[in-house]
Amino acid sequence: MKIKFIRRTLAIYRRDKVAIFFSFLALLITLFIYVFFLRDNILQTMPKGIHAKQFVDLWMIAGLISIVGISASLAPFEQRIKDSQDNKQYDFIVNGQMSKLSMSVSYLIAAVIEASVSTLAFVVIAYAYLGVGDSSLLTLNMFIQIVGYALLLVVFGCLFFACITNLVNSISVFSSLSAIVGALTGFFSGSYIIFGELPSFMKKLVVEWPGYKIAGVIRSIMVKNVTIPAAYKPKLFKSLGIFRINGNVIKLLIVWLVILVALLILESIVDRKR
């Protein structure tokens, strides 16, 4: 029944062609916001001696990928809220077809699939945009690594929002949550305001967010082939949130994933005892 339930959730998603269109339009708008509003401002802050246009494009696209990976992870849970609001979940439980836990897992799996498709589509679009400008810095190996980390971010985002949406009981609240998430993801990825310009208390908060860590790793992968004078590199990379994967990043991700899985299990146990 779990597989059928996942198929049913995905079928509902595919059936709403208008929603799919606007979800992909939102991805393009995210890219357009950078190209027409953010790009020139960031270029003006770049030091001389580097290929500023190439560097900024790669840096910003990496940040946008992290934004999409998180924001796309929330949208699929709308169906979960609709089912709960319409009491459809109880129909499955009362009929003995599914348990609360298996239903939660099914929503989660469907969300990962939907968010992965959206994020992968954006990565392809972004890569095409970069390729039009200068494809010499783009490689297949880079693309594979970016997709891998983007999907890791999707898994984290889906687990995170699976916990959050347990507290949401109406579509109106979900819509408000979506608006808040859309605004915050840009800041927490260090894209709309670069890390070096954030207040000290915000820096302490942002560095503990896995979305920022994974964005930093994707940025490191994308800008590694850009020529940057050694004198600028350490300070510039720290200010812009660029760093390689290391033990601290892995430890943070593991801790977050364990906490989120534990919360989901606890929520299912509590629901079963109600």
Rank of each mutant, 00 (worst) to 15 (best):
I218G: 00
I221L: 12
V173N: 10
L159H: 01
V168K: 02
S175K: 14
V217M: 10
I218W: 03
K203L: 11
A230R: 11
I171V: 07
V223A: 01
V173S: 10
I221R: 00
V173E: 11
C163L: 06
S200W: 05
Y232N: 12
V207W: 06
F201S: 11
I180T: 07
F161D: 06
F188Q: 00
N225G: 06
G186I: 04
M202N: 01
N166Y: 07
S191F: 05
M202C: 06
G211T: 09
Y192A: 14
A231Y: 03
A230S: 13
L205E: 01
K224R: 15
V207H: 02
F195C: 09
I221H: 01
T165I: 13
I228H: 06
I171D: 05
S178F: 13
S176W: 09
I214D: 09
F160H: 10
N169T: 13
F160C: 11
E197A: 13
G157F: 03
G216W: 12
S176V: 10
L167T: 12
R219L: 10
L184W: 04
P229I: 04
I194K: 10
Y212L: 01
S220W: 14
C158Q: 12
I171S: 13
N169V: 03
I228T: 10
V226S: 05
S170W: 00
P210N: 11
I180E: 03
I218R: 00
P210G: 08
A231L: 07
L184D: 02
S191G: 11
P210V: 13
S176N: 05
F201R: 00
I164L: 12
T227L: 08
M202G: 02
A179R: 11
L184Q: 02
A231M: 12
Y232A: 10
G190E: 08
A162Y: 00
I164Q: 10
N166D: 08
S178N: 09
Y212W: 11
S220R: 07
A231W: 03
I218Y: 03
A183C: 10
P229D: 09
K203P: 08
E208P: 01
Y192W: 15
I221V: 13
S170V: 08
S220G: 10
